[in-house]
Design a protein around this nucleic acid. Structure first.
Length: 431
RNA sequence: GGUGGGAUUCCCGAGUGGCCAAAGGGAUCGGAUUGUAAAUCCGACGCGAAAGCUUCGAUGGUUCGAAUCCAUCUCCCACCA
């Protein structure tokens, strides 16, 4: 069951950034099922793909027989983690955070199994053990174990302390103590001996290791996962249309699938190792095949399919693939009336054409539908023949002729208009 | 409590009376090239199809004219206590 191959596997996937007491940890993992935890703070009403790596790693541990605890930060979410953040964050009020906690619990639960014998997962909330604690006990029992000198020295808050024009409040500075306390508590109540987290969490994790040793007399461990970076240096997980969320109502499965489809070649094999459960050998094979082949690699398709399946399930993958195929195959005349209906169902963004367009320029219409942020962008596209309605390029001269373009006669099957803006943005209009 | 510094368009950051819708960089979007990739080049990037309209923490004021000067306020930061 439990064995050290897990660490070997994680390492071969590039998933280990740092480990505490490496040899002892290996030994510890070999002895049997270990209880480990990873925390997720409610900073929004959904997790985004940044949390995917730790989430999937919990699952990897569970697959090797260990028991994962997903900690939702009902308490820490009220404080805000300052680690490597350039600025103090504004506090969210507690009813908001409480609402987010519930959503995160549900999301987190998709990835780990709660019906797995004695290594079934559990979801815990750190508000449960911090809520009732009074200030004096906190300061005397917990705070006493922390040296401000060493806290200030942590890399994670360094820029906040050193950098001109920034600062850190006592509230955020205390975050480290709260998270350390979580680890110590879970060690005591659940026998939890390992914490995993992003590499930005190293300082907070080591704090917890210290505290568990001092308060519980137990040796516990930490592993951090690499920060996901892109080869071009831009931030992973964000596009102009915003963050890629795990919640299907915030980022549609189709958009989610597309996000992974446009992964750069330079990143895609790394991402396959991070974000999928495919064997490293299989991933290496894919890479070899792509290298040998001419043209577009298959890796992005595999990645998109695997990750979308993990997050949104099989049906969503099928739907996303259907849409992708019809839109990017280049031949929309192949689509049947039922296909259009299906596209709508599958989550291709769709808008009903308003009754009279004589006063509505295309710019306004497309901006209202959410295809661009301003009319200027549409104007730019129109001038470059980059707005395609049912395979017909529209120019600036068509701007005011919405009524003709979106007429019953012009529509496919009398009512559908597939509008393409640029190479990648598609939107379905219907009468 | 004291002293000093700051708040500029998505982000960073110039601008200290007219030439400012506001330099530069980043991000983003569109085009060419391509493979729904990267790199490169071109274009856009407050709102508006346009005429035009609205901005530089807030409110008032000085001025023919203010992001720039004055007053008050709000928030932030540093140092000292």
């Amino acid at each position: 069951m439990a064995n050290s191959n897990l660490i070997a596997e994680l390492q071969s996937r590039g998933l280990v950034a740092q480990m505490s007491s490496e040899d002892e940890l290996m030994e510890h993992l070999e002895k049997g099922s270990v209880t480990l935890y990873c925390g997720f703070d409610p900073t929004a009403d959904s997790l985004h793909i940044g949390s995917l790596v730790p989430l999937l790693t919990l699952r990897r541990f569970q697959d090797y027989g260990h028991k994962p605890l997903a900690l939702v930060g009902g308490a820490t979410g009220l404080i805000g983690d300052p680690s490597f953040k350039a600025q103090e964050r504004k506090l969210n009020d507690d009813s908001t955070v409480a609402g987010w906690v519930d959503k995160l619990k549900a999301q987190v639960s998709q990835f780990i199994s709660f019906d797995n014998g004695n290594n079934s997962a559990e979801v815990v909330n750190n508000l449960d053990w911090t809520r009732g604690m009074d200030v004096l006990s906190f300061l005397r029992d917990v705070g006493k174990h922390f040296s401000v000198n060493s806290m200030i020295a942590k890399e994670s808050v360094k820029q906040r302390i050193d950098r001109e024009g920034s600062g850190i409040s006592f509230t955020e500075f205390t975050y480290m103590i709260l998270q350390s306390f979580d680890f110590q508590q879970l060690n005591k109540s659940h026998g939890c001996t390992l914490q995993i987290g992003g590499s930005d969490q190293w300082g907070n994790i080591t704090g917890g290791i210290e505290l568990s040793r001092r308060m519980n007399g137990n040796q516990v461990f930490g592993i951090t996962l690499p920060l996901v970076t892109k080869s071009d240096g831009t931030k992973f997980g964000k596009t102009e249309s915003g963050t890629i969320w795990l919640d299907a109502t915030k980022t549609s499965p189709y958009a989610f699938y597309q996000f992974w489809m446009s992964t750069a070649d330079a990143d895609v094999y790394k991402f396959l190792r991070y974000f999928t459960f495919l064997d490293v050998e299989r991933i290496a094979e894919i890479e070899e095949e792509d290298k040998a082949a001419v043209g577009r690699p298959q890796a992005q398709g595999v990645l998109a399919e695997e990750v979308t399946r993990l997050v949104h399930g099989n049906d969503a993958v099928e739907a996303a693939k259907r849409i992708t195929e019809s839109l990017f195959s280049g031949d929309i005349s192949q689509l049947s009336e039922a296909d259009f209906e299906q596209l709508k169902q599958d989550g291709l963004p769709a808008t009903q054409v308003p009754g009279d367009l004589s006063d509505t320029p295309l710019t306004t219409l497309l901006v209202d539908a959410g295809m661009a942020n301003s009319g200027k962008q549409i104007k730019d596209a129109l001038q470059r023949d980059a707005v395609i309605v049912n395979d017909r390029a529209c120019g600036m001269s068509d701007n005011m002729s919405g009524n003709e373009i979106f007429s019953t006669e012009a529509g496919l099957f009398g009512k559908y208009f597939l509008v393409k803006l640029g190479k990648k943005k598609h939107h379905l209009f219907y009468l």
